[in-house]
């Protein structure tokens, strides 16, 4: 990757909370005010973003702050407003109200600048099967006006980056789903964007391919200074992110690093199987002061320290205990806590 064009401190957005008071300057015109505070500049900023379609309000006031170099995940069930939010940030949909800026340009007033500075990997596959891998990338290079020599080098670099170099002259329709996805990532990065948006990048891929794709994405992050902004409804995928925002019903319900969000729950999850669940429920309430609810895996309850609770439970419940499972809080618990239902239930409802 010699002679690589790298984007560093580009126009710096205001710190969170300062809204749009600080004006965005054109590319490269502003010094980095946030640098003094030791924080990377803001690359994606949304305030009160709303999108209403006739009869549906898909996004109802979303605020986001994503800093350069972060891997940021928008986690939510199907229909939560993830794709609409991405579409507005990528200038493919116009916000009904609210404002957003991406890579230092306003999505409404300067969509051209936003488009030049972002890459996009779409929810459904958008490579041309009748062209080869290299031709797909060259098409993209021309659309983005990359100088020819730069384009040639970058096509080779990007194909190597996603491990498709030996297939560069194969027709894309002969590729597997995972390979097509990797090609799309290569294409999204071809014009050296500051932010790469990935809308459900692993949708429809089998778990093994999904894991492989994440290896590639992590590798990309070690090689490029690029912000990854992705949407997902896979909880395990959200674990790969530096920070996530949980979106439900068009609103952000919570935001933070996966570890912080899980820690905020402050409790382990205990699933107990007993010989008599009804008796156990009342025993838990009366003797331990705990509220449990029945689930397929047994009675579920949350306690601060699961490991030390288990012996007390077995000794004091008064109902034969068949099995106990203690799990550390997961993102599913975070989702459950914030929305009152699991993400799988939420997916099923919609």
């Amino acid at each position: 990757m010699s002679g690589e064009v790298r984007f560093t401190a580009l126009p710096v957005g205001p710190a969170p909370g300062s809204g749009f008071a600080s004006p965005y300057a054109g590319a490269g015109e502003s010094d980095a005010p946030a640098a003094g505070r030791g924080l990377p500049p803001v690359t994606v900023l949304a305030r009160g973003l709303r999108k209403a379609y006739p009869g549906v309000e898909a996004v109802r006031g979303v605020d986001l702050t994503v800093r350069a170099g972060e891997t940021f995940g928008l986690l939510g069930p199907n229909g939560a407003g993830k794709s609409t939010t991405i579409a507005m940030l990528c200038t493919l949909a116009r916000p009904t109200t609210g404002r957003a800026s991406v890579a230092g340009a306003d999505v409404t007033t300067d969509p051209g600048a936003v488009r030049r500075r972002i890459g996009l990997v779409f929810q459904d596959l958008t490579v041309d099967g009748d062209l080869t891998a290299a031709e797909n990338l060259r098409f993209h290079a021309d659309l983005y006006g990359l100088p020819r020599r730069t384009a040639r080098r970058r096509v080779a670099d990007m194909l190597a980056l996603v491990g498709l170099h030996d297939r560069r002259d194969s027709l894309v329709r002969t590729f597997s789903g995972g390979m097509k996805r990797r090609l799309e990532i290569a294409r999204g990065l071809l014009h050296a964007p500051q932010v790469l948006f990935l809308d459900e990048p692993t949708l429809g891929l089998d778990p093994q391919t999904r894991a492989q794709l994440w290896e590639h994405l992590h590798y990309v992050r070690t090689q490029r200074s690029v912000t990854l902004f992705l949407t997902t409804h896979y909880l395990e995928e959200a674990e790969h992110c530096d920070r996530i925002a949980v979106i439900d019903g068009g609103r952000i319900v919570t935001e933070g690093s996966p570890a912080d969000l899980k820690a905020a729950i402050g409790a382990d999850r205990v699933a107990v199987r007993t010989a008599d669940d009804t008796a156990a429920l009342s025993a838990l309430r009366e003797r331990f002061g705990l509220r449990a609810h029945a689930a397929p895996e047994g009675l579920l309850l949350h306690v601060p320290d699961g490991a030390s609770f288990v012996p007390r439970l077995c000794a004091g419940l008064g109902v034969p205990v068949l099995s106990v499972a203690v799990t550390r809080p997961s993102l599913d618990d975070v989702f459950l806590r914030c929305t009152g239902r699991t993400i799988h239930d939420a997916d099923g409802v919609r």
Binding site: R115, F122, L125, D128, G145, R187
Partner: peptide, 10 residues
């Protein structure tokens, strides 16, 4: 879907 690749280009 290929149309979207073209539509989002600058």
């Amino acid at each position: 879907g290929f149309l979207r690749e073209m539509l989002v280009a600058p």
